[in-house]
Structure formats: C-alpha cells, structure tokens
Amino acid sequence: MIGARRRIGGGGQDNSWPGFVDALSTLLLVIIFLLSMFVLAQFFLGQALSGRDQALAELRGQVAQLGNLLKMEQQSNQSLRDSMAELSASLTAANKDRDSLSANLEATRTQLEDSDARLRAMTEARERFEAEAKDLAEKYGLADTALAEERILSRRAQEQVAQLQRNITALQEQLGRLEAALQASEERDRRNQAVIVDMGRRLNRALASKVEELAGYRSEFFGRLKEVLSTRPEIRVEGDRFVFASELLFASGSADLGPEGRAEMRKFAETLIAISREIPAELQWILRVDGHTDKRPISNAQFRSNWELSSARAISVVRFLTSVGVPPERLAATGFGEFQPIDPADNVFAYSRNRRIEMRLTQR
C-alpha cells in the first residue's frame, strides 16, 4: 500500500506521512494483538494459579492430617515401646521363674529317683527279710524236731560215752604195748638205716668202678678206631666222640649212605662188635649216633627242615650198623639240626665242619 502511494505521488511532493500512519496503524494492530494474547495468557495463567493454590491448600490440609497421624503414630510407638519394655521385663522374670522351676523340677526328679531306689531297696530288703523269716521259721521247726531227737541221742551218747571210756582204758593198755613195740621197731630201723648207708657207699663204689671200667673200654675202643680210621682226614676225634664229615657218608641233601660211607661204617661196626665182646654184660652201654647240619635251610619234598635231615641221617647210620651185626638195643639215634654247631662262623669251611655225624660210647 505504501509503495502504491509512493508510485501515485511520485510527482515530486513529499507524501511520507501516510506511510508513517500506515506503519503506526500496523504497529498498533500488532501491539493490540500482543496485548490480547497477554490478557488471554494472564487469564489462563490466573486460572492455573488459582487451581494450584487450591491444590496447595489441599496439600497443606493433607500435610496437617499426616502430621496429626504422625503424632498419633509416635504416641502409639511410644506406648508400644513401653509395652515392649514391660513385656521384656515380664519375659525376663518369666525366664528366671522357668529356670528356677526347671532346677526345682530336676531336684524333684532326682529326689524321686532316689526315693524310687530306696523304695526298691526297701522292697527287696522286705522280701529278703520275709524269706529269711520264713526260712528261720522252717529251721526253727526243724531245730525243734532235731532237739527232741538230740535229746534221745544224748541219752544214747551218754551210754556210748561210758562204753567209750571203757574202750579207751583198753586202748590205753594196747597203746602202751604198741609204744614198746614201736621203740623196738625204731631200734631195728636205726640198725637197718646204718646198713642202707653202708650199702649205698658200696653201690657208689661199684658204680664208680663200672664207670671207670666203661671208660677203659671206651678208651680201648677209641684207640682201635683210631688205628682203623685214622687214614681219613674226614674222620676226626674230638674229646670222647668220633666225628664223621657228612660229605664222607652222604650226598648233599640226602640221608642215604653212599658206597664210601658204607665202607667206613662197616669198619667202624667191625671194631665196635669186636670190642663189645670184651665188655662185661652187666655194663649197660650204648653207642649214641648224633646227626648235625649247617645252618643253611633246606626244604624239599623229602625233608622240610634241617632237623628232619639230621634225624634221618642218624637213623640211616643206625640202620646200617644194625644190618651189619651191631645189636639194636646198644644204639640210639638223635638229630640236632643246625642248633649244635662246632664252628659258629658263616663261611663254607664252618659249614663243612658243622655237617657231621658224631659217635659217642656212653652209659645207658
């Protein structure tokens, strides 16, 4: 519009006022529009503020109510705390009463058990006393009966006492005669004891002479055997016995006499038989054959231990001597296993010395 007006009055005359008026009118319309919008905004804002005030009032009322409720709740909590304290005190007192009642109950139970035990003991004692009283009554009846019988027996006993006195007088007379006879017998015993002592001395002297005689024959026997067997190093004399090495007589682990052993045992038997003819028959002599092994263990189908092996070897020698004419009643076989070594060393030489058969002439 302003531009139109400018174009209309473009003849050189200043026509700016109408345009200014138009601008003012336009500005005025804008301001009016803004004021109307502000009024509307104030109206709606007033409405909103009035609603907020009402809500605030309601909230203040609710807060006041909640404050009142909080005070009432605090008062209730305080009363509950007081009640709780009272209940705790009551519970503590009740616990103390309960503990006291429990202790009293336990004491009462103990007393009741003691009373029951005493009652049982008294009952048993009463039953025992009743049984004893019954037994005593029975015994009294029996004693009364026995007393009557005893009186009868007493009279008879008095009669028997008189008879016994007469018998005692007769026995005293017999005792006097027996004492005289006993003295005579003791005198004979003393004489007989002297004779027995003298016979014992004579017997000891005779036995000593027999032992000396047997020792002489044994010395002669050993002397002859030394002459017969001294050529073999496997045969040695140790004290009062002949020692034969097992290697000379047996194979290893065997109890059968070998050919060489049989030959040596045959010479031994011939010498023994020859000397036995010179020994008097009253001399009770025997030849003891002892078997020994070394300490190395043995276990096979035939021998489970060295004891069995040593015994079997001694028996084998005795059987051979019997077969060649030595009287069996003059022989004895013994096995010692490895338990009587003559050399305790642990080497092959000691083993060889300990494996042996020993012959000893001794008295039965």
Rank of each mutant, 00 (worst) to 15 (best):
A245M: 11
L272C: 02
E308C: 12
P280E: 10
E260K: 13
Q284V: 03
D294W: 13
G258T: 09
D256K: 11
N306E: 04
S246V: 08
A314V: 06
R236H: 10
R288E: 09
F244W: 06
N306L: 13
L229Y: 14
T271E: 14
D240V: 04
L283N: 09
L225N: 01
F268K: 12
E264Q: 02
T231P: 00
A274R: 03
A314W: 15
A255N: 13
I279E: 02
E270M: 09
A245D: 01
V237A: 15
D256V: 05
R288N: 02
P297I: 03
R296M: 10
R262T: 14
G261H: 08
V237K: 06
A274T: 15
A301V: 07
N306H: 07
S299R: 15
V237D: 06
S305D: 13
R241V: 06
R232L: 01
T271C: 07
A255C: 12
P280C: 08
I273T: 01
E308R: 11
Q284Y: 04
E227A: 14
G291S: 14
E264A: 12
V228H: 10
T271K: 02
L287I: 08
E278N: 03
L229H: 01
S310H: 05
E260T: 00
F250D: 06
S254T: 09
N306I: 12
V228Y: 15
L248M: 00
A263I: 00
I315V: 08
R277N: 06
I273W: 03
S299A: 14
G258M: 00
S299G: 05
I235Q: 00
K226G: 15
W285R: 04
A255R: 03
G258I: 04
I273S: 10
E227I: 09
R262V: 02
S310F: 04
G261Y: 07
I273P: 00
T231H: 02
S299F: 14
G258K: 12
S310Y: 01
V243R: 11
T231N: 07
R262N: 08
S246F: 14
E308A: 12
L283C: 13
K267Q: 14
D294G: 13
Q302K: 08
P259S: 14
R277A: 03
